[in-house]
Design a protein around this nucleic acid. Structure first.
Length: 269
DNA sequence: CCCTATGTTCCCAA
DNA sequence: CTTGGGAACATAGG
């Protein structure tokens, strides 16, 4: 479910609730996630997001890395409510408990001892260092469709299928256009669209098209601002042409065939 | 039964 | 080495 705005929402909400708090206990219900054992009595020093990964630093030099993949959720609860089905682990604090719920069990949890040189991954965070010129330089050397480039987590960390579709619609660029054919001016349009869309989606606490919920169980609001995602067959808000859906890399890719007109010979199939 | 799904990784072929 | 396609992971919903 979660892309950058959803993970950022969880990150901010986690900070409100568990920063500086002590872990009183952990219950692991999914044997795939035993990495979480041994964190009892540790205190939360910081919560951060790297791409779609939540990074929780504890004392004693311990770092938890949580990736929710497709269907992972975090839910903060007070009191002794019954756990939701598919709850995979629970972390208990004095103030409440944090449930990780994940029907498809794709979510991953790892625990690392922080050792000396913790070099940053050479990955671009769309909100911190998405600069058109830098992206243009990297893209010049690649021959993949621009949408594949935007959702490649080794290049840019955090953009997934929904926001890639929205960004390319906003920038009026064909998702299949080869990245090595994009001008610097087009990259400036992509930069502008990416930053405005992701910021607005964060302000909306994410996009709920099916089951995304924030840490307090609330739906997001950005689904009301989607222009093309999940709108196949509906008219384009700009030109009234019919929004199309085609597969790219096995993912549903929504676009306006008129506003995002393919440039001759630059489209890949 | 069929298909789809906001993610990632691995294997294989061109 | 690069790229694209498909399967895998596991489950719910239309």
């Amino acid at each position: 479910m979660p892309e950058l705005p959803e993970v950022e929402t969880l990150c901010r909400q986690l900070k409100q609730v568990i920063l500086d708090k002590e872990i009183l206990g952990i219950e692991i219900l999914d044997p795939k996630l035993t990495a979480g054992e041994g964190l009892v009595r540790r205190r939360v020093l910081s919560v951060a997001r790297q791409g779609k990964v939540l990074e929780i630093k504890l004392d004693a030099g311990i770092t938890m890395l949580l990736h929710l993949r497709l269907t992972g959720r975090l839910l903060w609860q007070k009191g002794n409510n019954l756990s939701f089905p598919h709850t995979r682990f629970t972390i208990f604090f004095l103030q409440g408990r944090l449930d990780c719920i994940d029907p498809r069990r794709f979510a991953t949890l790892s625990v690392q001892k922080t050792i000396g040189t913790n070099f940053a991954a050479p990955v671009i965070d769309p909100l911190k260092d998405f600069h058109a010129f830098r992206l243009w330089e990297i893209a010049r050397r690649r021959k993949i469709p621009v949408k594949s480039f935007l959702i490649d987590q080794h290049i840019i960390a955090g953009i997934g299928n929904i926001y890639a579709c929205e960004i390319l619609y906003e920038a009026s660029i064909d998702p299949w256009q080869r990245v090595d054919s994009l001008s610097l001016a087009k990259w400036q349009k992509i930069e502008e669209a990416t930053i405005s869309i992701l910021k607005r989606a964060i302000a909306c606490r994410g996009t709920t098209v099916s089951d995304w919920r924030d840490m307090f169980g609330r739906k997001g609001e950005y689904q009301h601002y989607l222009k093309v995602y999940a709108s196949g067959g509906y008219p384009c808000p700009r030109c009234q042409a019919t929004i199309q859906c085609m597969h790219l890399q096995g993912r549903g890719t929504y676009f306006c065939p008129t506003c995002q007109k393919p440039e001759a010979k630059m489209r890949l199939f």
